Simulated assay, not measured.
Amino acid sequence: MSSKTKQAQKLLLFRLSGARQFGIGTLKIREILPFMRLNKLPHSHHAVIGTATFRGSAVPVIDMAAAVGGTPLSREERDKASIIITDIQRQEIGFLVRGVEKIIETDWKQVMPPPKALGSSAFITGLLDVEGDIIQLLDVELLLAMVYPQSLVPEEVSLTDVQSETLKALNILLVDDSQVARKQLSDALDSKAISYQVTSNGDQALQILLRDDELGRPIDILVSDIEMPGLDGYELTFNVRDHGSLKQPYVILHTSLNSEMSLSYANQVGANEALTKFDARELLQAMLRGAEQAR
């Protein structure tokens, strides 16, 4: 196995207003369309401007500028705008943007975490310097949670007493750069009184893995996002598998991408499983499979 098996990361750059550029991973994107006539969607969030017909399905379209607190595009601006059709967290969503720029290839190690001064409400997961321009990577999961707050309501999952006690005995580490995803993961375990550790990036996760192993309480289950600034989920898994003295955890890579390609790369770097966000039942069942292996 080689670290070169990890997937090349590409970003679509686009504008919402002015010259500032934003980015979104191309693996999330199904298609880019010119603005089209939309069907009205009554009683929806103010940023949801209608539905587009995409391959026979009605896809809600969100004015991304309005969703992040900016000025919505005017009717005249919409005529020159683009709709980015995405596949995120098991649903197709269209995002209206002022203009699509280009696709670039990048290394997630070059992505910097956003300044803490931005606070928890910033729709940014990272910053990337591209030829002197600072590209802001949008936290699409947070954006969707603001537009569809019902998506954050924890799903009720039933476990037997034996299953609950089995998971409570494990040392579990959760890793995700999205605050929404971290909340979903945490809620799933909090609802069952299952303890865990959580961090927002792969570099910190690797340090926790090494520290806990040295202290004699190695991590049993590692649940990690794939796309993260710094050490992404693929490389984190590779580094864990490549560390000869480290007691090996059961690795579950967790991604908002509904993509067979991303899941196949997860297997190549040594992950035990790869799941599409977010299904609490699937996650807990995967952890129970990991518990069986840890015995």
Score class of each variant (00 low, 15 high):
F123I: 06
F123S: 14
I124G: 09
G126R: 13
D129G: 09
D129W: 08
V130W: 02
E131F: 12
G132Y: 13
D133F: 10
I134P: 10
I135H: 00
Q136E: 11
L137N: 10
L137H: 09
V140Q: 11
V140E: 00
E141Y: 04
E141P: 06
L142W: 01
L142N: 05
L143I: 15
A145S: 15
M146F: 01
M146P: 00
M146V: 11
V147C: 07
P149M: 02
Q150C: 03
S151E: 02
P154R: 02
P154I: 04
E155T: 09
E156P: 02
V157F: 00
S158G: 06
S158A: 09
L159Y: 10
L159N: 06
T160G: 15
D161I: 11
V162F: 13
V162Q: 15
Q163D: 12
Q163G: 05
L167Y: 10
K168M: 04
L170M: 11
L173G: 02
L173R: 05
L173M: 01
L174F: 09
D177F: 01
V180R: 07
S186C: 07
A188W: 01
D190Q: 02
S191G: 06
I194K: 04
S195D: 14
S195W: 06
Y196G: 05
Y196A: 01
Q197G: 03
T199H: 01
N201T: 05
N201M: 04
G202S: 08
D203F: 12
Q204M: 09
L206N: 01
L206H: 05
Q207N: 09
I208E: 08
L210E: 12
L210K: 15
R211K: 15
R211A: 13
D212L: 10
